[in-house]
Simulated scan of single mutants.
Amino acid sequence: MRARPASVAVLAPAVLLGLAACSTDGAPDAEEPGATSAEATADATADACAAGELPTLTDGTLTVGAGEPFEPWYVGEPTSGEGFESALVYAVADELGYGEDDVVWETVTFEQIISPAIKPFDLAAYQTTITEERAEAVDFSSPYLTSHQGVIVADDGEYADASSLADLEGARIGVTAAQTSLDAAEAAWGDAVEITPFSAAGDGMTALTSGTVDAMVMDVDQGVAASTVYFPDTQVVGTLPDVGEPEQLGLVLDKDSALTECVSQAVDALEADGTLDGLRTEWLKSDDIPELS
């Protein structure tokens, strides 16, 4: 699932060819420049990502950007370590050699996170989908979650029994303006529904419970928390079909940040050792929600 750094992928064939060219009748090989070069590159990368060597905004501190905390991403304040992204950040920090006391949180808006402006953080963790358009303005780490867009309706509403996309035709659908829910809703229904953008998911959910819209589309994991914690008279009836490539969330960094490769390596390590799977199981509850077709 995780792509390894391009430099390693390019070097591997060259190393193999170097070994084949140097072998002679089973005799021990002389020094192999290709292997030495690869080892030197790996050593240099490890040194660059060593604790205390990262060029963070403040020496010895990892500054993390996030918006207003809400479940399942943050339970309580981001400093709690509770919730999927809060726990993720502390796990990444640990991989990079930073203790809990070395992590400082900065409250930012979603627009600040995805804009090309210089960031007041080293990395941001705020449910940011990796897209080609955004990648022109910011860097992303390796993805830490593959996500889907969920459809939330009121328990006593007209669409409470919806089990297909067709069942929701004619509905007033709320989406979050700057996020991928808009594209997913347009791809799913086209002109068969009336789409209303909201500046924040909470605004859309408030509109749903008041009857201003009939359904709300948002990240399904966010939707599960919204329907069980914040708006208990609502339910997630299903997810929308993916648009193009599956949606994946990544940590956000400044464009061409010197930290990007190190942060990606940390995420990759957490995927490889099962930490990310454990965090998904502990904090996200969306595995059994069906896709609407």
Rank of each mutant, 00 (worst) to 15 (best):
R4D: 13
S7G: 14
V8R: 11
A9T: 15
L17I: 15
G18Q: 04
G18W: 02
L19H: 07
S23T: 15
S23M: 14
A27S: 13
P28C: 08
D29Y: 15
A30G: 12
E31S: 14
G34K: 13
A38I: 06
A46I: 11
D47H: 12
D47G: 11
C49Y: 05
C49G: 08
A51H: 07
A51E: 11
G52Q: 07
D59V: 10
E68Y: 14
F70T: 10
P72E: 00
Y74D: 00
V75K: 14
G76M: 05
S86P: 05
Y90C: 04
A93I: 06
D94N: 11
G99C: 07
G99H: 05
G99D: 10
G99W: 07
E100M: 10
V104R: 13
E106V: 13
E106Y: 05
V108I: 10
V108M: 00
T109L: 05
E111L: 11
P120E: 00
Y126W: 13
I130S: 05
E132V: 10
A135E: 11
F140N: 00
S142Q: 10
L145P: 02
A154R: 13
D155M: 02
D156G: 01
E158G: 08
D167S: 08
A184M: 03
A185V: 15
A187E: 09
A192G: 03
E194P: 06
I195M: 05
T196R: 10
F198I: 00
S199Y: 09
D203A: 15
D203K: 04
G204Q: 01
A207N: 05
L208P: 03
S210T: 12
S210V: 15
G211A: 04
V213I: 14
Y230M: 11
V236P: 02
D242F: 08
E245D: 15
P246W: 05
D256G: 07
D256H: 08
S257R: 03
V263W: 02
A269T: 12
E271S: 12
A272N: 10
G274P: 06
G274H: 03
L279K: 06
D288A: 12
E291H: 03
S293L: 11
